[in-house]
Amino acid sequence: MSVLTVDHVAVGYTNTVIIEELSAAIPEKKITTIIGPNGCGKSTLLKAIARILKTQNGAIFLDGRAIQQVSTKEIAKKMAILPQSAEAPSGLTIFELVSYGRFPHQRGFGTLKKEDLQHIHWAIEVTGLGELRDRPVEALSGGQRQRVWIAMALAQDTEILILDEPTTYLDLAHQLDILLLLKKLNEEEGKTIVMVLHDLNHASRFSHYMIAMKDGKIITEGKPEKVMKSENLKAVFDINAILMTCPFSQNPICLSYQLNKETECLLQTC
């Protein structure tokens, strides 16, 4: 079952079209990861799905309805977004930032009701920020800050979470920490998660479904075993990758790689 469908979509910025025509389906209650080289249009696709960028052609369907025809507040009850470089105004505390996640559920001036407080409290606890909720967001480390934004998205109480490079700028342990949190949310809360990741091995290890893009087109998509093949990685990233099976997750991972050109050179000199 797919909950989000991208149907022959063209999208880009004022003068440049990044994606000319693309169709895809995001499976429900699964983790889907979009991979691809810089500038391939993966963030653009994510932004189009998140209605941050308007599609120039085609349509995106959420639960069978075109998102342009549904009020943006209604969409916000089903889909939460974590942009790539979200930055909180200084002085904002964790509790305050997370409480803004309740906006789509509020009417009028937005006083927090019992239900809102429950969701905020839960979101802060599940992301492990309970001790810190009085602190200003800017006083946190990068990993904690990312958790706060995830908590805000969780307080939004949506079925779908959309994240643009949630692990960028984090160290190895904190990257894993965020991904494990997302995995837990998928397994325990049944959240549908769509994200962009740069790390292929993380993508393979944590995704049920992968979409590999290049030049605004999908090169291949499917389960990690199907996508993580050396010929696909060659086509998408122009690399020669040595793949093996991850001893932890039994998914294919990239042990090491070389640029395609380099291998050719090496082979020639040999």
């Binding site: 941050i52 942009p83 803004y100 906006f103 939004q156």
Partner: peptide
């Protein structure tokens, strides 16, 4: 004022929260 607070989080976050 409430909407302005959301805008102060950035356009993308505001859109994600259902702000016009």
């Amino acid at each position: 004022s409430k909407s302005i607070t959301l805008l102060s989080l950035g356009d993308e976050v505001a859109i994600g929260l259902g702000q016009r």
